[in-house]
Design a binder for these strands. Structure first.
Ligand code: SF4
Ligand code: SF4
Lengths: 143, 143
DNA sequence: GAATAAAAAGAGTTTAAACTCTTTATTTGC
DNA sequence: GCAAATAAAGAGTTTAAACTCTTTTTATTC
């Protein structure tokens, strides 16, 4: 349903929201180790998040990633759009193109409930909410 | 969420349930053309369904695929197990291994609703039900 | 301003799903 | 029994996602 890249991006953004301040940046090294995500692969994903302004970064000694004014308020849907594009809308139960509610596949009605539910979640939840759940030990970023 | 193979298998099984009688078998050629599925790829999938006794086949002139006593009653979950294995249970929102409700990832609770809903559908619906929907033009097998 | 530390960028490799092509086995009808 | 039709089986190729490795750019500190 979602790419691994999306999962990585989501967890990374949440980690940065919790731990990445401008005074105390998080290096890629630290991030990748903490989240158990392949170092360089995560690097590419972080570039993308930075490029889209979801988080900030600086190079050089004591450089790293840190939260900016947008980070906490970012809806999960924004991150999904960055990592998976419009895949969610097209890449459906039967991976069918050229179809819609007026010409439904044999799983459409059942799947629509599921998909629209997740879409609702993605549009509503923000990185901030995830960070709060992790802080309150209601969810885990690793393992 | 589900493989394309699963979608192909589901649609093929439904088509056979509707059109495949022992007196009037459906050839792979006809099946692949009707459903717009790559010929030989579908061949492999059909082999698998036959091997598992979901549908029957005979070789030779006027051979082809046809429904047997199990076909109509087959729950979608059986077909999913054949095509995707236990992928559904492990290959989750964040594609995380080593996790469960007691150690949830940041999307677990939201995703569980979605996944359990689809699991319920898969366990409850049968090929017969899909066939009826297609016959009643409430859903389409192609396009 | 040289050395160093870090992100950014680029260019590969690996892997699994999806798809294609070829050969073999089996059944039927003559 | 022979030819033809058809599924079954096997062996490739393609594609995209996931992952790895190398080089370049930028910022800091001394
Ligand atoms: S008909 Fe609906 S569920 Fe089926 S592939 Fe299209 S959008 Fe997805
Ligand atoms: S915690 Fe739940 S939703 Fe997340 S990967 Fe595991 S089973 Fe899936």
């Amino acid at each position: 349903m979602f790419s691994k890249t999306f999962g990585y991006a989501l967890r990374a953004a949440t980690f940065i929201a919790i731990h990445g301040k401008e005074e105390k940046k998080v290096s890629l090294q630290e991030l990748a180790q903490s989240l158990e995500i392949p170092h360089h692969f995560l690097g590419k994903i972080m570039q993308d998040l930075v490029r889209h302004g979801i988080i900030d970064s600086t190079k050089g000694p004591n450089g790293g990633f840190f939260a900016n004014s947008r980070t906490a308020q970012t809806p999960l849907l924004d991150i999904l759009a960055i990592t998976d594009g419009s895949l969610v809308f097209t890449h459906c139960a039967l991976n069918n193109k050229r179809c819609n509610a007026a010409h439904p596949c044999i799983l459409h009605n059942d799947f629509a409930v599921c998909r629209d539910g997740m879409l609702q979640v993605m549009a509503t939840k923000t990185v901030e909410i995830l960070a709060a759940e992790v802080a309150g030990v209601k969810a885990y970023l690793v393992r």
